[in-house]
Design a binder for these strands. Structure first.
Lengths: 116, 116
DNA sequence: TGCGTATATAAGTATATGATTATATAATGA
DNA sequence: TCATTATATAATCATATACTTATATACGCA
């Protein structure tokens, strides 16, 4: 229903915001709001070790903010739009710079993973 | 200009969100979005020691998210609506439960500080 | 001036966090 | 089946965080 705002308890909201209060994880969520991504793409995008990327994604997954799907060797992550805090997160993301160019640049470098 | 959304860099946004990723500070900012408050009111509202409250407020002040004014013995805090990330913070707060009842309850218990 | 109240700051400490390194698991293809 | 690639997890460690206690500062009032 348009006009209805989904409310989140302060305690719940602060847990989500603590997760997003890390530039890597916030960047990941911003990227995922454009498109699904897999771990090796994040490794490239953030110039960060694979275990580090996996651990950040795990934290996001543990609270249910992202979901994963395996496709062949790759595990793709996406935002869980049914999460109770998703509406709040979405209004947040509106204030962040568009991340599409980074995905495009990745694609041009031949490092974008796509499964059909 | 309506329709224009103020953008915040991911690094800046994550710093703000890290601060708001603590239930005490998020609660404080939510309260302050209703009305100015002083330290002793937060001590009562959050049932927390005075130094702890002061330290949380200092972090919020250090990034410029809140401002202070001394009035007599008391130092009142308020949200800095000119902060570059304020629009983002404001859209966040919309998703949190209304805090007015807590201020009203404080007033009824005679613990609300007001200076004229 | 001296006392009480409000607040800030400093020091200390236990816990949380984010990175690294090493290792385990799972899928692909020769 | 074996090597390679992608990912997860565990262990470790340095740093950050949030609280406590103790103390300093500032104001109001008798």
């Amino acid at each position: 229903m348009s006009g209805t705002i989904s409310l989140v308890e302060i305690e719940t909201a602060s847990k989500i915001l603590k997760l997003l209060g890390d530039k890597t994880r916030l960047g990941m969520v911003a990227m995922l709001s454009e498109d699904e991504c897999c771990v090796c793409e994040f490794v490239e995008l953030f110039q960060m070790s694979q275990p580090s990327v996996s651990q950040h994604l795990r934290k996001l997954r543990d609270v249910g903010l992202v979901e994963e799907t395996r496709r062949g060797q790759w595990i793709f992550y996406r935002i869980n739009t049914s999460h109770e805090a998703y509406p709040m997160v979405q209004t947040l993301l509106v204030h962040l710079p568009d991340q599409r160019s980074k995905l495009i640049e990745l694609e041009q470098r031949g490092l974008r993973v796509s499964c059909d």
